[in-house]
Write a protein that binds this DNA or RNA. Structure first.
Lengths: 111, 111
DNA sequence: TTTTATACATAGCACTGCTATGCATAGTAA
DNA sequence: TTACTATGCATAGCAGTGCTATGTATAAAA
């Protein structure tokens, strides 16, 4: 399943914030996490993710810090801020509005 | 509640197609229908809707025909095509993938 | 006669998502 | 020891487009 461009754009932020709500993480791991929880139906490229992370950091929704992994490689970890938590809640709410609308329409159609 | 720009873009097509699945309709009525089923939480402008309708028609998802209303005004009615029904089903499926992902993340966070 | 509601249309540009590309290192297969 | 894959991050730059702003027209109502 390939998600439409619009849907990818609309879902990236809430998904990233929701992942970081559980625990701090870094770019590469986030991509894998998204694949995992979507049964490989959502496939993000790194080139698409990093700019989004930078935007979220600029917006103040997440903060970053560098850590060295056991492997020796450097990883840029992201931590969700209070503003990020609020944004995440807001986005989820907006999603539920649309979801509810689609739900109502489906039911109406079935009648 | 004001929906984010991305979400508006991603939800417009499935919502319009879902409305037309129930019965043929026209621009102005579609805007009112969206307000109604979303408890006035989704507010589309006509300037935003008409281009979307034209795009959907060009894509072959809907077809149009003119009708004169009792009021005397002309209305451009839209009818969903077979391709449109398929597209609608596909989009709904894509939405459920994202919805499911967000759901899983929420549950993981709660644990 | 002025305003509001109804009804559709689109030029054009501001905006931006993301592709394409680049850099770097660790592990592993050959 | 070489090549390849996986890991890991970064961004220039432009193709692509969503939608604001604007225009037209008619009916009804105030």
């Amino acid at each position: 399943m390939t998600l439409s461009k619009d849907l990818v754009a609309a879902s990236a932020t809430p998904i990233i914030l929701a992942i970081l709500q559980a625990k701090d993480s870094y770019g590469y791991a986030i991509i894998q996490k998204v694949q995992e929880i979507s049964d490989h139906q959502i496939a993000w490229t790194d080139g698409m993710l990093y700019p989004v992370l930078h935007r979220l950091e600029t917006a103040g929704f997440i903060e970053s810090y560098w850590l060295d992994a056991d492997s020796g490689r450097r990883r840029k970890y992201y931590h969700i801020t209070t503003a990020g938590n609020e944004e995440c809640a807001l986005l989820k709410q907006q999603w539920s509005v649309v979801q509810h609308a689609l739900q109502v329409l489906s039911e109406e159609y079935m009648k």
